[in-house]
Design a binder for these strands. Structure first.
Lengths: 248, 248
DNA sequence: ACCTGAACACCGTTCAAGT
DNA sequence: ACCTGAACACCGTTCAAGT
């Protein structure tokens, strides 16, 4: 049940593009993006499927509209400071919004061209670099280097670290050694085939087992680590008067 | 028609998991991943749809197998050098493979847990950092910072830079000013709403219009720019004896 | 035991028939 | 003119009937 679409509203007020989009966002928040279909969304709104097509041309446009709704809701203006902390705060703010809408990262990546709200967002970030004295050249490449991270998307390869057997680390606490001999064998086979991965995973598990509920990695820390590495790099290049093409 | 599955083979030799996977890769290379369905793949192999389920449990496993096939084909061993150029070459090699299989990036991102070939690849990269004297701690965060870029995935937000109207920049050469008044109006409206984006796009178009066929950005350059910024950052932190947690 | 046609429970979207 | 039921052309996968 979508949180911000009261039950009475679902049947009484007439459909509108805005109401369709809000319902789609709420539905994806709750049920996941893979469960969102035109037919299910119509059902959620107490409406025949074809009624949606009055307000969105097709599913692609629905997804565009959902992205638009999330991005348009980002922090309106970050108060002036140096370019670095302005960009930093803006990107971390975007990340917070994407964390609230777990489906958004995937949908944003599936879009092929930017919507108005995304363009406005990018415009503001570019403006921050320019206000900090960055050349067009360096700003251009800095934006590329940030990539989708500029919108707070995480670039992690996998959601979870690898586990020796299926569900193995999820069912047994890290501190307790596995009693199941089959699981132990799988763990040993893994250690043989992927020694460096195993060593790393072991060190991470050990480090974080002291923290309450602290298995896996700290997504926020990793995001900031990478972001700061890039921002520091930009700052250094800017200070050196870096140019992409030393003219011949 | 898939290139590396000769026509005679499609009907004569019996199905095998390997043949299914190779056909799927070839089909996705040619027709795109969105066109790949169990039914179409079966048709391509001259086989009834259900025959595929003898060799892959379901479509998810088919996609896993396709990723496996591509990643397993990566450069077997990069000759020893310093950690930095070893990692650099390995990642750029992976990128080359992903450029050849346009569908792979999207499919890799859709997987939730790493397959054996991916684990082996990650293991080798981790091993390179460790051989370079990196601590487990720094190696861990460096791998996170690389994210999916470690496999050569590009992190760009959009494939193409924004254009004022639909297909506007695609149909008209950048050097020739638009004659269509509606297009000119759209361009001006865009310049007003997104001044920084417009300025940047203009500078990029101007810079690259001298190159033959050179519209848009140089993906390879941008990838290396971001990669080197990260590797330089790792090197600097390593040299400083960086640690994530200054113990209390 | 193996293979496979038909069927099931879905999709997004078109279209023509109803009001 | 607007709305909508049925239909179309697909999916991935189950299952029971055929060999």
């Amino acid at each position: 049940m979508p949180a911000d679409v009261p039950a009475e509203e679902s049947r009484r007020t007439p459909l509108s593009r805005d109401r369709v989009l809000r319902a789609a966002v709420a539905f994806a928040d709750g049920a996941g993006i893979e469960a969102l279909s035109m037919r299910r969304l119509a059902q959620e709104l107490g409406v025949v499927p074809m009624a949606l097509y009055k307000h969105v041309a097709n599913k692609e446009e629905l997804l565009d509209g959902m992205v638009e709704a999330v991005v348009a809701g980002l922090d309106p203006h970050v108060s002036g400071a140096d370019w670095k902390s302005a960009v930093r705060r803006r990107i971390l703010g975007a990340r917070d919004a994407l964390v609230r809408h777990a489906w958004a990262a995937q949908v944003i990546r599936s879009r092929t061209s930017p919507t108005p709200a995304v363009l406005a967002y990018l415009d503001s970030v570019i403006g921050m670099f320019r206000a900090g004295g960055f050349s067009l050249d360096l700003t251009h490449h800095a934006m590329h280097a940030l990539g989708s991270r500029v919108l707070g998307l995480t670039e992690e390869l996998f959601d979870a670290p690898p586990s020796p057997g299926p569900r193995a680390t999820a069912t047994a606490p890290v501190s307790a050694p596995a009693a199941d001999p089959a699981q132990t064998a799988a763990r040993e086979a893994m250690a043989l085939r992927y020694p460096h991965v195993t060593e790393l995973a072991g060190a991470v598990a050990h480090d974080r087992s002291s923290v309450v509920g602290g298995r896996g990695c700290d997504d926020r820390f990793e995001f900031e680590f990478a972001l700061d590495l890039l921002l520091d790099g930009f700052e250094r290049l800017h200070g050196q008067g870096w140019t992409s093409a030393p003219r011949p």
